[in-house]
Design a protein around this nucleic acid. Structure first.
Lengths: 322, 322
DNA sequence: CTGAAAGCGCTTACAG
DNA sequence: CTGAAAGCGCTTACAG
């Protein structure tokens, strides 16, 4: 018989335990199939050591890519992912607060969710290290991309091909469109057009929920315009696919009648030959994980911004206007 | 001032608390940004209420689809996903046991991981409800598909087209190939060929790690055979894509020279026009979640097997042999 | 309706 | 090296 404290010692490899005792304890553990209750452990130690990822829509292709990077960086160690569907806007806003898991993790990688000042404060108070991905907050460590520049890259490519009637199709999530990636990509698009002396038309600007179906609908509206665009820049590959479908379905050709540029460079982009702005999704997950580990190990102050590069990938959905 | 017990009561809506007291407590909670520690709660109540999903390779397209179904069924409620990369076989075997989260959840949906008898016993002892997806264990509730039949569907389609030199490319995961989905699909393939009186050739049978690159390599081997196949059945769409790439790269045409059939019907299958056996991935996630909820609510005994239908989807990668 | 107290399963000084 | 004991932050009978 051994005391419970001794069991705890062998389990944690702390304190010193004689070899025979340790062996007996180990044998008993094995035989009974004993597994320490994690909640009691974390309660007693006063801290947790799990790493968490919060994602609305884990199943969005871009989120999946980011997650791949995170998992890779974890090298086989399991992480807890708090996943949920974004069913409505207000719900999404409240999610962050409801996350039970926040208490249980040493660090949190938050994807596509804009924490408020209070969220950040609460997380800090709870001693949780935070890294943001596809979201921003000045006090939080974050991995970002220059979306404005990305928008410029796309628009400049189209302009250089000779297009002037260039439309924009973007998604529409809460927290102020202008702060979101799509909003900044649109800003870049405007910059490029303005610099080229091309008129920016309000009717060429469309946005809606982040789905392919929505992109199809918006494209339909665009094509029905008196002066339809000869090129469409979609703020994501997912939407670009919807754009292509709508164009094709209406009897027009890509890029013959309408050029299309996407954003992300998902795997499927290569398949359909989509010209797009490549963003290092996978790499962003890796990087975020490293920053997280550094943060927890106090090798790094919070608030750092890591900028990842963007790159235009020209394929077969863009051509000069006919 | 109120006692800690009262705070607990208003937090849980249990016992009775006078309206004014409740209001004061709520105000204080709001002001202090108090959030109860989940580990202490679950410790004190003796049970947890989170739902968990365990997946090796969350980023596999099929896992993502299943997860989508689970999340949809949760209707916006967050779930905990324990995700990890499968970096090696033995590691994968040990993962289930290492999962801390097991203690913290009321129910667990386990995807593509074969629990041992001890795993199941331990989970039962811990009072965790379990539902298996893409894995089996007689004592566990599970959502399955008739993989043998699926293999028959694919092979019969190819046979009916007139093919006789039909090869198989499958994945290769631990826990006995014959128990895995790919193994059963191969068994179905053999059934169909045997019934059609077509010789089953050992050299037409290839398998390796579940990646597109591997499928490419295996296909290369197949095409280099003295009597290369005129059709290839891949045990997954992911591998089918690799097969197509290898065929095309070697200067041959699909389906002109080689017909290709996949399995799953991922979104990308429609894009590339892949003929495939459709499996209700999304639906399996929904179903598993329902079963889980029923299990936790004791409206269902463990051990139930739910069979989902399979369907051949003919597109443009299959044609009669030339 | 509302405190004080015990207990959930651990960890960690504290004695010995 | 190894127990007994306190304490982690809650919940839940138990009194009042």
């Amino acid at each position: 018989m051994v005391g419970i404290a001794t069991v705890s010692r062998v389990l944690n490899g702390s304190g010193s335990v004689s070899a025979p005792t340790r062996a007996r304890v180990l044998a008993a553990i094995e035989q009974l199939g004993y597994r320490p209750a994690e909640n009691a452990r974390s309660l007693a130690r006063g801290h947790r050591d799990a790493l968490g990822v919060v994602v609305p829509g884990v199943t969005l292709p871009s989120a999946v890519e980011r997650l791949r990077g995170v998992l890779e960086a974890m090298g086989g160690d399991p992480i807890q992912v708090v996943a949920f569907n974004v069913t409505s806007h207000e719900q999404r806003d409240r999610q962050l607060r409801r996350l039970r898991m926040v208490d249980q993790t040493a660090g949190l990688i938050i994807i596509s969710l804009f924490p408020t000042d209070e969220d950040i404060a609460a997380l800090q108070r709870a001693g949780v290290a935070v890294v943001l991905l596809d979201a921003e907050h000045p006090a939080a460590t974050r991995v970002v991309v220059d979306d404005v520049h990305g928008g410029e890259l796309a628009a400049e490519h189209l302009l250089s091909l000779g297009h002037e009637r260039i439309a924009f199709v973007g998604d529409d999530w809460p927290h102020g469109f202008e702060f979101r990636a799509a909003g900044r990509r649109y800003a870049g698009y405007e910059n490029a057009l303005r610099r080229a002396g091309v008129t920016i038309r309000r009717e060429y600007y469309r946005r809606g929920p982040y789905t392919r179906a929505t992109a199809q609908r918006l494209t339909g509206e665009l094509l029905a315009l008196p002066a339809p665009p000869t090129a469409i820049f979609a703020a994501s590959d997912t939407q670009a696919l919807g754009v292509i479908e709508a164009v094709t379905r209406s009897g027009l050709a890509v890029p013959g009648d309408v050029s299309v540029v996407g954003f992300d460079d998902l795997e499927i982009a290569a398949y359909v030959g989509l010209t797009t702005v490549r963003q290092p999704l996978y790499e962003s997950g890796r990087k975020a994980t490293q920053l997280m580990v550094d943060l927890i190990g106090r090798r790094q102050q919070p608030g750092i911004e890591e900028l990842l590069p963007l790159e235009l990938v020209v394929r077969t959905t863009t051509a000069p206007p006919s």
